[in-house]
Computed example of a mutant assay.
Amino acid sequence: MSDQQGAAGTGETEEFAHVSVMVPEVLEYLAPKSGGRYLDGTLGLGGHSSAIFEAAGGDISLLGIDRDSLALDTAQKRLAPWGGRASFFQGSYSRFEEFMDELGWDTLDGALLDLGVSSIQLDDADRGFSFLHDGPLDMRMGASEGDAPAHRLVNKLSHAELKAIIHRLGEEPMAGRIARAIIEARSKEPIENTARLADIVEQAYPAKWRATARRHPATRTFQALRMAVNRELEELAYFLEHITERLAPGGRVVVISFHSLEDRAVKHTFRDEAKGCNCPRNVPVCRCGRVPRLKVLTKKPLTPSEEEVARNSRARSAKLRAAERLVEAA
């Protein structure tokens, strides 16, 4: 993952040129300090991690996680100047506690997630993420993790299941029509490649909608299938549930999201952790015993500047939220 949805690093590597999203904002809110331990849960090509090292004068320890082996190989080359200060693990960022335990880390001084699909994945037709390039209908961020590829979902799920995925994860108003079109098309021949699925979705749209659409009609459907294949909301939910416990007092968590459902999950978790007590309003005295554990640093999500969007159009939907671990009362 990462160097996400339009994100990608601050410079060039041997293999790729890429531009990481909202680097100044990440550094401002993560506030890396000398001697700290930091998690980049969506390492990608290492753009954000490289900037974190530079901001701390190289004197930090980094845990970098990514599902994509190619991204990890590239990030390791990029971060080589910092030698053994960076440790790399292939897998989902929801496994961060497992990887911390392997390193003998109890707590973190900072954690970063840059959600979405990486530029190298979007631009590789063989990965099947984009309807702009014909290729096998795959969409797995990490094929070694056992996720079912997108073509399996498209060809096996019922109408109701397809409709639910496309409607919920893609927020697609034509979800029912699209699901019916997929069912009809696969009854004649399995849907195995991105170009055919994109055409099926496009033809499912009413002609008037196709004529006036600002983006390709398949955009939301492809997004929904990608999120379902990689269990992206489930991964985020687990991370948000467990990250606060692993932050040291004063430690910070920064999340960049590209989807309203992701942003909503981050917003609600930060708000609930900052509020503490979750007893019903009609209970006069707190019975749950929960205390605030986070201080929200961003009242509203930060978005990229106009200049950044002009340089990197894939950054336009990015939203950044940050919070800080409070010191627990004695």
Rank of each mutant, 00 (worst) to 15 (best):
S2F: 14
P284K: 14
I191E: 04
L157K: 09
R95V: 00
H18L: 15
D126H: 14
R214Q: 13
I191N: 05
K163E: 15
L39T: 01
A207Y: 04
A148S: 11
R67H: 02
E324L: 13
G58R: 10
R95C: 11
K300N: 12
S50F: 07
M1V: 07
Q203S: 10
R140L: 07
L30G: 02
I256N: 13
S119V: 06
H259R: 01
A237R: 14
I120V: 15
A111F: 02
R246G: 03
K267S: 10
G44N: 06
S260G: 08
S158M: 06
V283Y: 01
F258W: 00
H242N: 15
P149H: 03
E28M: 06
V291C: 03
T219S: 15
V21F: 00
V266M: 01
E184P: 00
T10E: 09
D147T: 10
E184Q: 14
L197W: 01
G84Y: 04
T42G: 06
I178Y: 00
P81V: 04
A211E: 14
A322F: 05
A185Y: 04
R293Q: 14
K33D: 00
A318Q: 12
R316L: 00
K319S: 13
L247Q: 09
K300Q: 13
L103N: 06
R311H: 08
A181Q: 11
A218M: 08
G83P: 10
D109C: 01
A207R: 15
K275C: 01
S158F: 01
S49M: 05
D68G: 12
D123C: 10
H18D: 15
R215S: 12
G250I: 03
V19T: 13
L108R: 07
H133N: 13
R78T: 06
P206H: 09
L197C: 08
L153A: 03
Y93L: 07
R127I: 08
F99P: 03
G289E: 10
I120T: 13
G83K: 10
S260I: 04
S49T: 13
V327N: 11
E161N: 07
L70T: 08
A111Y: 04
D101N: 14
R196D: 13
A125D: 07
D3W: 12
P301N: 06
R252C: 05
E172T: 10
R290N: 12
Y29E: 04
E28F: 04
I166P: 05
T303L: 05
A330L: 08
C277H: 03
E172K: 02
T303I: 12
Y29P: 02
